[in-house]
Design a protein around this nucleic acid. Structure first.
Lengths: 131, 131
DNA sequence: CTAATTGCAAACGCTTTGCAGGTCC
DNA sequence: GGACCTGCAAAGCGTTTGCAATTAG
């Protein structure tokens, strides 16, 4: 009857995961979150973290990106939107924002009649210290 | 100028992998390439494909992206540079080019004193047919 | 000949899944 | 009470690595 797009029951574990995501300013892997929860005293199974994050991603509550190590990293949607400039040599990371990119992405989406468009963008290079 | 930055010995296997990458217009996973080679009659070990692609990526001969399934996908650098707009629902993919993005990426790189900057960018949304 | 390279199979890290028990409404 | 959720441990998947045999220069 009530069309619940995603039937997510608000359990203690899920609240904890949501909170952990809210605390984190940046992208977090499932295991990062699992660690954080454990550190905070909330005992949540690793599998539950994976399942919950997956569900939240499908529900559109969080954004997902692919980390360089083959893991998925998550952040809550409301987070300040920015991108990363990563040094291929030392791994140093700089946060950058790109109004131009956001605008462009939006335009492209409209042009091709796509809705709910999000994007993932990362820059790689060699930083000054490593040259 | 024709110095070899990385001491890669041009073996039969490596030539085959390079060729397979040249044939492919788009991104290919290591296993895709392994399949293609095998199909073409060139017997190359899977581990060798992984090792070679890794070496080529480090040498800057190919670009690497993280696939959604946690795998790495490769393409030769000389490929016409473009990005993808992917439908989250049906998987339909549109190639898009973004002069604005390229310019912006370049500017950001200079601003932060990074050299040899490359970028990976993908757009996700719901296409018109899936709405 | 010497050092780089290959292939195989075992090892790895991240993620998913089966199942028995617990929880929410 | 019934459906959903959780935890554990085992399985799955893509990738990496150790080691002996092979190949290029």
């Amino acid at each position: 009857m009530t069309d619940n797009p995603t039937s997510l029951r608000p359990t203690r574990q899920r609240r904890a995961i949501t909170e952990a995501l809210a605390d984190a300013a940046d992208f977090q892997s499932a295991q990062d979150i699992h660690d954080a929860l454990r550190h905070a005293g909330d005992k949540v199974g690793l599998a539950t973290v994976y399942r919950t994050l997956q569900a939240m991603a499908e529900a559109g509550e969080v954004d997902v990106l692919q980390g360089t190590g083959g893991e998925s990293v998550y952040r809550r949607c409301s987070t300040h939107h920015h991108h990363h400039l990563v040094c291929r040599s030392c791994g140093r990371t700089v946060e950058v924002t790109g109004p131009a990119v956001e605008t462009w992405a939006d335009a492209v989406a409209r042009e091709h009649d796509f809705a709910e468009v999000s994007h993932s963008l990362e820059l790689f290079g060699i930083c000054a210290d490593c040259r």
